[in-house]
């Protein structure tokens, strides 16, 4: 998917938590962590282990310096920067380059 698309407003985001956006039939989880380098992070909403579209509803935080979201189903952690699962090397999720431009959330 190649695109540069305004997905939503910054006001739609929730501080230190996630929301989900639908972009060309793909469910994208967008997290807003003020105070961290990127501030916004986007990964696929699909939990490959729990087999459901739920990652936007997980708790975010950091483990050993890696910014992660914990799946709300079975609690595995996925890196918000690499998409890798910390507990299971064979599992990972797609990541999307995302930035905040003029209070808009833009996915490249």
């Amino acid at each position: 998917m190649s695109m540069e698309k305004i997905v939503c407003d910054k006001a739609d985001l929730i501080e230190n938590s996630g929301v989900c956006a639908l972009v060309q039939d793909e469910q994208i989880a967008i997290f807003y962590l003020p105070g961290t380098g990127n501030e916004v992070f986007a990964i696929s909403n699909w939990d490959p282990i729990g087999q459901a579209n739920v990652l936007s509803r997980g708790i975010v935080g950091d483990l050993q310096g890696e910014i992660v979201v914990a799946s709300p189903l079975y609690k595995q952690h996925f890196s918000l920067t690499t998409g890798k699962c910390l507990e299971d090397e064979s599992a990972s999720v797609k990541i999307y380059p995302v930035s905040l431009i003029n209070d808009k959330v833009v996915i490249q």
Partner: peptide, 22 residues
């Protein structure tokens, strides 16, 4: 409360229990 939202497990965030299909 805004300052508490990000702290809650999904069940508490949405005041309901998540099932296996989300």
């Amino acid at each position: 409360e805004s300052s508490h939202v990000g702290l809650q497990d999904t069940n508490d965030t949405f005041l309901a229990n998540m099932q296996k299909d989300g």
